[in-house]
Design a protein around this nucleic acid. Structure first.
Lengths: 241, 241
DNA sequence: CGACTGAATATTGTTGACAGTTTACGGCAG
DNA sequence: CTGCCGTAAACTGTCAACAATATTCAGTCG
């Protein structure tokens, strides 16, 4: 009997379960399923031309990923992210993103910095033209690169999870190009902090950027945690430079 | 048709799938399954007195949680955490734990501080008696409390995931009571930083504590990332107090 | 007219069987 | 004795049917 670990092949190929999982994920993120809505296993299976087994397995996986919620004997529901929970996600994302900056400040190289600067340049052009469509892609790449450049796969995976959950939250409510110029100014701050190889400043810049994004998306004041209205803002850490 | 979100009942009750999931998880963490070993769906289903369906669904869930790895047409394998990956997990755990401290420093109250101090006292007694069994529980509670007291459920969940993956890594290799006194000295530092309501110092104390634990578990030098041999150590942040 | 009751329906939970793939075994050539 | 090849066994992937539970709706009583 072969009980040895598998070679490091592709984690999962194209099985019906994966097909279903990808499809459901796409539907959720694409707005085909609205938060709170139930997924009808039968209907979906028919629609995909497969049987319920793979669909159920896919839903189990998505549940562990936090995209759907399983309720016994009632079915699977598209996860509802309350504003309160969105705040949690933002808080955590700020921490993850800031920590990524902290790690990155240790070993970022000039090539990577140049790449980031080029992205910032692209975003600046798009922002000044008020062209959100052209802003979107480099913005995504910028954030993604910052986390993936840490080399820590788990950090990246967790970051992606959080981003996906936020997509879930503001599905349909996304105010597109609001504050692109402000946002890109923060991007420049981030690059500057990394170029200075200053971990603490990088943390502050990057965590602060997420918080600013939260404020742009959710609106200013926090409803709970009244002691720290405008977010934690990380100003207590120490002045810039 | 009722498409409204479910009431916030227990996320999942006792279905066979959950039974299987809990059982597998228990077996993995309890050392019944060794990393790299394959789970035989049929055998396990028989052993649990259920059919393969629920077992497969449970495995999908565990895969998304990172406890097992699915290989198409070959089966599910207990996740193998390489030393390299363990380093990743430690790195991330340091960030999460440190960030928890940062958040906690904002709003920790005296009751919570008193509780932490009591736990430290219990651990001190156990450490001086070199009694690891008595050290273990309060130690677990201490760490858990620090993260859960942030009030951020996702942070806590992610932290638990990381801890579980580390259990997976050092299953069987766990050197029990090594360095209890050192460890508890760091605990005191953590409490002191929180009592001072100093977020940065709390971050450093708590992230540093995880790093120290990593050094205690994995041994001193990092094999990669040669520039930062003894870990990042967070000493660049600023001198204590 | 509105709230309750109970059957009918829809949907999820679970099972056993079948198809496709991988793994193990045994014979055979060198 | 060793390595290759073909067949048999084992196992995973998928499906369709059955059981258990929840939901809907019509009818009835107050």
């Amino acid at each position: 009997m072969n009980n040895i670990a598998p070679a490091n092949g592709p984690l999962q190929a194209h099985s019906l379960t994966n097909l279903a999982q990808n499809e459901i994920e796409r539907m959720i993120l694409g707005g085909q399923f609205m938060p709170g809505e139930r997924i009808n296993e039968n209907a979906l299976a028919n629609q995909l031309g497969i049987s319920r087994g793979p669909v159920r397995e896919a839903c189990r996986s998505l549940s562990a990923m936090g995209l759907v919620q399983l309720v016994p004997n009632r079915g699977v529901f598209i996860r509802v992210i309350s504003e309160e929970e969105a705040r949690e996600v933002y808080e955590m994302r700020a921490g993850i993103f800031g920590y990524a900056g902290m790690l990155l400040a240790h070993h970022i190289d000039d090539t990577q910095l140049a790449y980031l600067k080029r992205l910032v340049g692209q975003m600046e052009a798009a922002a000044q033209a008020n062209d959100f469509d052209r802003y979107y892609a480099p913005n995504l790449t910028f954030h993604d690169f910052l986390v993936s450049a840490t080399g820590n796969q788990r950090l990246l995976a967790t970051y992606h999870d959080l981003v996906r959950q936020l997509h879930l939250f503001r599905s349909r409510g996304l105010v597109s190009g609001d504050g692109m110029l402000d946002s890109n100014r923060e991007h420049r701050d981030i690059v500057a902090a990394l170029e200075a190889r200053n971990p603490q400043r990088a943390f502050k810049a990057m965590a602060g950027h997420v918080e600013a994004g939260q404020r742009r998306a959710l609106g200013g004041a926090a409803k709970h945690s009244l002691a720290t209205s405008r977010g934690k803002s990380f100003d207590h850490l120490e002045p810039y430079s």
